[in-house]
Design a protein around this nucleic acid. Structure first.
Lengths: 153, 153
DNA sequence: GTACTTGCAAATAATTTGCAAATAT
DNA sequence: ATATTTGCAAATTATTTGCAAGTAC
């Protein structure tokens, strides 16, 4: 779905859930759906201000919480303990994040169920939730990496 | 290996790596190996002071970094973005954490390799690192949970 | 003795909260 | 009209850093 439509769709969803659709919220939403990468609240602020200059960082935080609640955004955990946010796609739960450009892609849970059962049997723990993130290089950065290597040689 | 021996073994390792073995470091190490749960720096401080009262929070942070570098401790990421630390066992990389009592167990990477290959094929990303944590109920808390349920009924 | 460590107080960084003014419905 | 939302400044929390005094080797 094109970004403009996503903004409308999610905007309608917010309203359906009883939230008001303000210019700032629309701006944050737009930044998010237009971005292929996961962004920190500060980065989102910077971009949102290009659409709605009188946006504050606090509002970004609050909006991201609303968007996460409604399912439009997903919180991504970074190794340093900070958080980034990525646009959500349907029903998928895990992320692979490019270590170079932070591009984020969601992928399906795959066969983690088998792993859970094994762990459950071996440890006695009842697995209730999980958290999986992959880090690597996106196709573009892989290419760039190779090109860089050639240049530097 | 019993906790006292682990303290000695890891202590020797620190020295072998050129670190000095101070009372505070010993205290932090002891707290860690004696604990089945993952602990926050603040919690570790509290317990370490029972052994060495003149321990400061900053030293705990610095010691945890040293211990993590040497492989004696592992950083565990909590959903809220804070960090906890758990004693490390050999060669294992993933954790299952009890949501009730924070008991932590490590388990082997299992067959994530297959998952990575699938993701790599489907997304074009080159998987370089990953991050997996499971959350659930440890055997003790499962029992307690059931008992509580009966009591409350 | 000397280089590594410590504790404190102060600095940073990320995030949250209180509140009066602004605004979507 | 009114309840929600906003921006600011201040508070909070987690973590880091500078530095003089203390200590393991």
């Amino acid at each position: 779905m094109p970004a403009a439509d996503l903004v409308k769709t999610w905007g309608a969803r917010l309203q359906a859930e009883g939230y008001r659709l303000t210019a700032q919220r629309r701006a944050v939403l737009q930044v998010l759906v237009e971005s292929a990468a996961s962004l920190s609240p500060a980065e989102i602020l910077q971009r949102a201000r290009q659409h709605v200059p009188e946006t504050g960082l606090v509002t970004v935080y609050r909006t991201l919480e609303v968007l996460t609640t409604c399912g439009a955004a997903r919180k991504v955990h970074r190794p340093d303990g900070c958080h980034s946010y990525a646009p959500a796609s349907e029903g998928h739960m895990h992320h692979i994040i490019c270590e170079r450009c932070r591009a984020v892609l969601e992928f399906e849970g795959c066969d983690l169920g088998t792993l859970f059962k094994t762990v459950q049997r071996r440890t006695g723990y009842k697995v209730q939730a999980h958290w999986l993130e992959l880090f690597g290089l996106c196709p573009a950065c892989r290419q760039k990496g190779m090109r860089d290597k050639q240049i530097h040689k």
